[in-house]
Design a protein around this nucleic acid. Sequence first.
RNA 1: GGAGAGGUGGGAGAGUGGCUUAAUCCACCGGUUUGCUAAACCGGCGUACGGGUAACUCUGUACCGGGGGUUCGAAUCCCCCCCUCUCCGCCA
Length: 424
Amino acid sequence: MLTLKFIQENKGKVVERLKKKNFDASGIVEKILDLNEKRRSLLKDTESSQAEMNALSKEIGTLYKSGKVEEANKAKSKTADLKNKIKELNSQLENIEKELHEELVLLPNLPHDSVPEGKTAEDNEVVRQGGEVPTLDSSAVPHWDLIKKYDLIDFDLGIKITGAGFPVYKGKGAKLQRALINFFLDEAEKAGFKEVLPPLVVNEDSGFGTGQLPDKEGQMYHLTADNLYLIPTAEVPVTNLYRNVILKASDFPVKNCAYSACFRREAGSWGKDVRGLNRLHQFDKVEIVQITHPDRSYQALDEMVAHVQTLVEKLELPWRIVKLCGGDMSFTSALTYDFEVFSAAQERWLEVSSVSNFESFQSNRLKLRFKEDGQKQTQLAHTLNGSALALPRIVAALLENNQTPEGIRIPKALVPYTRFDIID
RNA sequence: GGAGAGGUGGGAGAGUGGCUUAAUCCACCGGUUUGCUAAACCGGCGUACGGGUAACUCUGUACCGGGGGUUCGAAUCCCCCCCUCUCCGCCA
């Protein structure tokens, strides 16, 4: 959520920059500014009436105390009209504020200056790539065949006990999950991210804080009996740890990592793109979250991207980093880098990580603020997060790229975690 | 699930209708004192949204878990909801 103050001071800039996200903000911005004018004038009236009432009440109190009952009663009679006026003004103010808030949450975050123009993923900009695409044996097959061949993951069993998109990992398939989770957590810790293990279920306030609610309600599993939501990513509980918090500048940077299962309804997708591990309702992911001083958030973003790069390099996967174009970016992000790894048997790039700077967009919803040392005034902090990494597509790429007639090779960096070097 | 207690500033904790501008203590910040530290003493101490100003100062309103009500006036009284704790039951 953009702040009112920012919109007021940067009206033209907001409209201009949001064009990059293919969002026409002109109408909403006008409406917001107009509503705010109304709000301010109403607020002024309300508050002065309230002040008058407070003074009157105090006077009545004093009169009663000194036994001047008649005068007190006289003063009392004056309060009735004022009281009604305040009630009326208050309800108008409440309506305006509600309307204003409804408009404010419709505005996406402004894309950073460096965000490329574009409408779809086609227009994303490849910024770096590395690793080598392996030349596979002619008998090479996609991962959904490999997991059957080696009995690593059972989709049918998942369908039986839950439904499509809830795989059951078995044997070395299950161990590979554990190995990857531990590998990612250890690496994150080495990079200075403190581990937390959050709840997998969050309340409505948390959903709002990171921007899943109200707009993406349909993408989360909702536990209606308790009005709680299954988390779509650890970003939600971890970032919300800092909801309604005022940090000191000296607390920066706050760096957390967390493993969690993630649950996504992903309604309405079928076909080849979602086959096998390409898209699931439940999957595992290690997330990194950072809270920084506004001056340092882009530096922090670069560091996080660099961290993710070391992961795909250690896994010896062919990778590339793309900077998302305006049209492909999320509602809340100011700048996003996606990591993709090449899946040799499917012959396509798979998105395995998304690293974003949200600047103060989430902080404003979260009321996550900080104070400079010795300053009274609070400012919004910047929040960032990234996957480091999401498992399923990494597993898909590992299986496909490392398949040999003898079995599937495990990359060296992972062997201490799996304690086997081949799946056969 | 049953029974009970409770929710007040960063923390502890007083406050049962108007000197509450929320006491007091602790923590924290500044000052005095001091060779340094500590102690002592003095002062300060939250958030949000407005008004005013060149700026600092100044000033208004709201906020005692949330919402509603009673009243000239509510942290305090009434209603609804949420949450926490304790004991019991069930249970990994």
